[in-house]
């Protein structure tokens, strides 16, 4: 009996956006009298931080501080249509809609500022920190907050914008499968290291180390969070999770967390990653998508590492200790 170590790799692509497109998202933005901007959406935050990254994209486009953005979302009476939060689409689709809405709102803002500063719209620029300046004349500047207030009380205007984004729906040729399924693709390569206990069949994942290329990272800390959480979920799928442990048998169906197994904090390996940024052509500020793909490459990397360690192929998920022991037995008794 021994503890065998092995290393495995896997490299994957992952598409952004609802497959075949046709999935619109919309956004509305308006300025308040104090110069904050309300972004109205109906997109839902699942915990990945959508409200935060959308706020960052709005702030960037409007040229104001992040703290000036209020995200008002997930109410169908106030938020314009959104297809939903799935398919790694939200940051890409909603982000593009918000850029469009913010661009329109900014134009309205510039028109009021131009009047106030007695300058042409084209001669104005922002400093990205809440100020508008006349190009080349640093002394002639005004706070966006002041313009927002003046727009309402001095000029009687709205500072508002509408935005929508949709990749037109692609049809599939039913014979050849010719189609345009996605907007862009992110990529990842994972190296997993495991130790297999041949006495118990237990696989210990020692490390999951990955490189990701995700276009632009809007919020690197949140990207790291997706990668770490996804690595855990991938390991969990590879080694633990099933609602039908003996598919196609229907017994042993779990009812609670004592019967549905997932790794806990004691089982967690070392998780590391490096993130490359090669902006996409159609994502907001070059975004691709990171939400779903992070569980994908760890699964085959772990399976390949187990083979490297044991010399036995396990092609059925999850790779439970029972399967490991049966596989090792078969290898010992069968012709090699």
């Amino acid at each position: 009996m021994a503890r065998l170590r092995g290393t495995g790799i896997a490299a994957v692509n992952y598409p952004t956006g609802m497959n075949l497109g046709g999935d619109p998202s919309q956004a509305l933005i308006h300025a308040t009298t104090s110069g904050s901007f309300v972004v109205s959406l109906s997109a839902t935050d699942l915990g990945q931080g959508l409200k935060t990254v959308i706020g960052q994209i709005a702030a960037e486009t409007l040229g104001v501080e992040f703290g000036e953005i209020v995200i008002d979302t997930a109410d169908t009476d106030t938020g314009p249509h959104d297809m939903g939060t799935f398919a790694s689409r939200a940051t890409h689709r909603v982000g593009n809609a918000v850029i469009a809405a913010a661009t329109e709102a900014r134009q309205a803002l510039l028109e009021v500022a131009a009047e106030e500063l007695e300058a042409a719209v084209d001669d104005l620029e922002g400093d990205g920190h809440g100020n508008l300046l006349v190009k080349g004349v640093p002394t002639r500047s005004v706070r966006i907050a002041e313009i927002a207030s003046m727009a309402q009380f001095k000029y009687g205007r709205t500072i508002a914008g509408r935005g929508a984004y949709m990749k037109p729906k692609s049809l599939v040729d039913p014979e050849t499968g010719a189609m345009d399924p996605d907007s862009t693709e992110a990529h990842a390569c994972t190296v997993a290291e495991v130790e297999v206990d041949t006495e118990t069949g237990v696989v210990t994942v020692l490390s999951i180390r990955s490189a990701y290329e995700v276009g632009r990272q809007v919020n690197p800390a949140l990207v790291q969070g997706q990668i770490a959480g996804g690595a855990w979920m991938g390991m969990s799928h590879a080694l633990y999770e099933t609602t039908a442990p003996y598919y196609p048998a229907v017994d042993h169906s779990p009812r609670d967390f004592s019967e549905y197994l997932m790794p806990g904090p004691l089982e967690m390996p070392e998780i590391e990653c490096v993130v490359l940024e090669m902006p996409s052509s159609n994502g907001p500020y070059g975004v691709k998508g990171i939400g779903e793909m992070t569980a994908n490459s760890p699964i085959p990397a772990i399976a390949n590492a187990i083979y490297h360690a044991t010399g036995v192929r396990f092609d059925d998920l999850p790779i439970t200790p029972e399967k490991i022991l049966r596989g090792l037995d078969a290898k010992r008794s069968g012709p090699s």
Binding site: G47, G225, A228, G229, G230, A231, W232, M233, F257, M262, G264, P265, L266, M268, I271
Partner: peptide, 16 residues
Amino acid sequence: TQALTGNICRCTGYGP
């Protein structure tokens, strides 16, 4: 990690 074993997090992978 020993103290946390009874509580489930489905999102973060526990590290954070």
